[in-house]
């Protein structure tokens, strides 16, 4: 399966990946020029953390082989696609119980900030060859790899 690889030592915490993710998931258009950063509805599915020594680390969903978010999901909204390897989220099935947020050991997940209803879950930009976060990363801290399952 395809995975977004992270080289944290190349990360400069520019938040390009965060912007890229917001651009891709913006309902009003997929160009950077369509993105209104004052619109609360624009949220990213990834984030960058700073550790105890002020080193940045991009946190992006791994689409785990043994995903805790799927194990814990009681509505069938979070599923592992055995063909593509992706962990997919169906917001229409979701009951907003937040057990996935509670269970992801890597702290990748959160609920949307407007209604606290929908889980902000990476979809690898669905049909895109290169996910937007990777495309927006200027230091190549993010790059695509094909990994054996």
């Amino acid at each position: 399966m395809r995975r977004i690889m992270i080289d944290r030592y190349k990360c400069e915490a520019c938040l390009g990946c965060v912007l890229g993710c917001m651009v891709e998931h913006n309902k009003k258009g997929k160009s950077i020029y369509d993105l209104d950063l004052e619109d609360m509805a624009n949220e990213s599915r990834n984030h960058v953390e700073v550790d105890y020594e002020n080193r940045p680390a991009p946190i992006i969903c791994r689409h785990c082989e043994d995903p805790e978010c799927v194990t814990t999901c009681m509505s069938g909204a979070m599923t592992k696609n055995e063909e593509t390897g992706l962990v997919e989220y169906d917001k229409d099935k979701c009951a907003s119980c937040f057990m996935c947020v509670m269970s992801c050991p890597y702290g990748v997940l959160k609920a949307d900030r407007i209604n606290n209803e929908v889980i902000m879950k990476c979809d690898m930009c669905s049909n895109r060859e290169v996910p937007r976060c990777v495309e927006f990363c200027p230091t190549r801290a993010l790059y695509m790899v094909e990994v054996a399952r």
């Binding site: 953390e49 550790d51 105890y52 680390a57 050991p105």
Partner: peptide, 24 residues
């Protein structure tokens, strides 16, 4: 981990293996 306890995150345990999986 010398930081505000509420700010502790996976970044403080960050480790990625050759398959691109997170580990602690």
């Amino acid at each position: 981990i010398d930081k505000n306890i509420f700010k502790i995150g996976y970044g403080d345990f960050f480790n990625i293996n050759s398959k691109g999986e997170f580990e602690f």
